[in-house]
């Protein structure tokens, strides 16, 4: 779980979505699946139970929230992203994607989708820290 990241967050000022309702998570999973994307990865789903979408500075992490800026469905519909990926968040320069074919988290350049860093499915913590760093 993303303990390192969550403790990092405690020291930051940020805005977050409403508390996650289990129905909202199910709706998000269903809609994303119907869009040809994957289910929300397990670790990220657990993270959403603590922070359902976050905005801090220029960093965004999506959740199953009615806030349009942070809504994982809206953002995956609207934002351009590489194939076979579920978009989980972004900062000014990079996207945080879950590659459901390779089953890993990727930090991808926002412009040319070049994969800059790859994190194993168990390393969500590092991927989240990366997107909040530079």
């Amino acid at each position: 779980m993303s303990q390192k990241f969550i403790s990092y967050l405690q020291k930051q000022k940020f805005k977050q979505g409403e508390t996650l309702e289990s129905e909202a998570l199910i709706v998000a999973q269903k809609v994303l699946y119907n869009m040809g994307l994957s289910f929300i990865p397990d670790a990220y789903g657990k993270f959403l139970k603590q922070h359902n979408g976050i905005k801090a500075g220029d960093c965004y992490l999506f959740g199953a929230t009615v806030d349009d800026d942070l809504d994982i469905i809206d953002q995956n519909k609207l934002m351009r992203k590489p194939d076979n990926t579920l978009l989980l968040g972004y900062n000014d320069f990079d996207l945080l994607c879950y590659n459901f074919k390779q089953k890993n988290y990727q930090i991808v350049d926002r412009n040319d989708w070049k994969v800059l860093e790859t994190y194993d499915e168990n390393d969500l913590d590092d991927a989240l820290l990366h997107i909040f760093n530079i």
């Binding site: 309702e21 129905e23 909202a24 709706v27 998000a28 929230t65 469905i73």
Partner: peptide
Amino acid sequence: KKSSYAAKHQQ
């Protein structure tokens, strides 16, 4: 009661 998120994406 339907969750507000579910209502948002039902249509």
